[in-house]
Amino acid sequence: MSERIPVGAIAGAYGVRGELRVKSYCARPEDIETYSPLSSEDGTDSYTLAILRPIKNGFAARITSVATKEEADALKGTVLFAQRDQLPSLPDDEFYHADLIGLEVYDTGGALLGRVKTVQNHGADDLLEVQLAGTSATVFLPFTKAAVPTVDLTAGRIVADPPLGILPEDP
């Protein structure tokens, strides 16, 4: 498991004075500020984030090292990471998305279905995008207790019971 977890992303400049548009991935979006200092994906850059106010789809925020619109625009697309030990402990049935990506997915009979490529959320429950074994095709598996009864982070595997119609038919 990674020691750094993505908690948000910089969506670009907000105004002309170096303020940024920040999207939070946190369950309580405003908590992103409490995990500062945040870092870039490769860990080379560190950012102390201060939320100024909520805006549509995120927050207007300030990072001390950013003073101009051009500097803010240059950070567009930067994913912000927090150290795992800064984040709250999760109950046994909850997981950080970063911990699920890359896990192998098996059906209830033990057959390998594929590997988790991404975790998506479009307003309802989370969906696991599973790249099917031996192909480039992907399917979306609802991340519910019924469809995913077992997640074993230690073994690096998920046991899934996909609803009918999710997997392509066998030839």
Rank of each mutant, 00 (worst) to 15 (best):
V116L: 08
V79T: 15
I5N: 05
K76T: 14
V139M: 02
P37Q: 12
P37L: 06
A67Y: 14
T118M: 05
L75I: 06
I101F: 04
Y47N: 02
L113W: 00
V66M: 00
Y14C: 00
P54M: 06
G15R: 05
D31K: 14
L80V: 07
G110D: 04
E70Y: 06
P6W: 10
A67I: 01
R21Q: 13
D99G: 00
D99C: 08
Y14M: 03
A9D: 09
P162L: 13
T34N: 08
G77W: 11
Y96T: 08
D42M: 07
Y106K: 04
F59A: 02
S39P: 04
Q131R: 15
C26E: 07
C26Q: 05
A147Q: 12
L38W: 03
V116P: 02
F95L: 06
D107G: 09
G110A: 02
F95K: 06
D45Y: 13
V119Y: 00
E104W: 02
A98P: 15
I101R: 12
K76M: 12
F81M: 10
R84G: 12
D45A: 15
E169T: 04
P91S: 03
A82P: 05
E94A: 13
V105D: 08
D126S: 07
E71I: 08
P88Q: 01
P37N: 10
D42T: 02
G8C: 07
D152P: 06
A82W: 11
A146F: 15
L141E: 04
L141S: 01
S89W: 04
A74H: 10
T48Y: 11
Q120A: 15
